[in-house]
């Protein structure tokens, strides 16, 4: 994954699109332009940190529909919605759909640049967490079924005695198993283990 950020601009108005690209390029960012929702969805790849500046009102697919399509494809990229038709319900539904910002055309250049910068930072953070989750999943994969059982029961706060009783094993076995699973998960305390298992749950959900 390349690390230089890239901003996608989606607007059906050529003049708006090109001027926006010029402005974002002046921030020393890479820009990719798309003239319609379908064009964007067909060609966009989220393989480097960045964000999308998306027009709300476009023929064929509206900005909201584009966001829905991205969500259904599990592409999590921060989206800044812009609209020359701004009204409260539109802004509300854009934010509900998952946009990180909503700007009404004509916006102030500074406001847009600020928003783009913050969106890229957010994306970088998200990707980092994502990578951590990947590592965590990998580690989880290395556990034996027995160790997973102990992990699950520990994570919901069961005392060792209850775990032993439930699994019909001796207390000592349980404690040995947990020691081994904590080593494999690279984890140092029961509290950390609970946190990790929460993260795992969100990832697998």
């Amino acid at each position: 994954m390349s690390t230089s950020p890239k901003v996608a601009v989606v607007d059906d108005d050529e003049q708006v699109r090109e001027s926006l690209a010029a402005l974002i390029q002046s921030m020393d960012l890479e820009v990719e332009c798309f003239a319609s929702g379908p064009d964007f969805l067909d060609h966009y790849t989220h393989d480097q940190p960045g964000c999308v500046v998306l027009d709300l009102r476009m023929p064929q697919l509206s900005g909201l529909e584009v966001v829905e399509a991205l969500t259904s494809r599990n592409i999590k990229v921060p989206i800044i919605m812009i609209s020359g038709h701004g009204d409260i319900p539109a802004a509300v539904s854009a934010m509900k759909a998952g946009a990180v910002d909503f700007l009404e055309k004509p916006y102030r250049g500074a406001a847009l640049m600020d928003s783009v910068r913050r969106a890229i930072e957010l994306d970088e953070r998200n990707q980092k967490t994502e990578a951590e989750r990947g590592l965590l999943l990998e580690r989880f994969g290395s556990l034996t079924d027995e160790e997973r059982q102990v992990l699950e029961l520990t994570a919901i706060g069961k005392p060792d005695k209850a775990i032993a009783l439930k699994l019909d094993l001796s207390l000592r076995t349980i404690q040995l198993r947990r020691a081994s699973l904590m080593r494999k998960m690279n984890c140092h305390s029961r509290a950390e283990l609970i946190r990790l298992s929460e993260t795992l749950k969100q990832t697998t959900a």
Partner: peptide
């Protein structure tokens, strides 16, 4: 509003780019 806001946005974008 929609018709006019588009060129206005382009003007604003270009002006900001020039200024920078």
């Amino acid at each position: 509003a929609h018709e006019l806001n588009q060129p206005l946005t382009a003007i604003a974008n270009y002006a900001e780019t020039c200024a920078r």
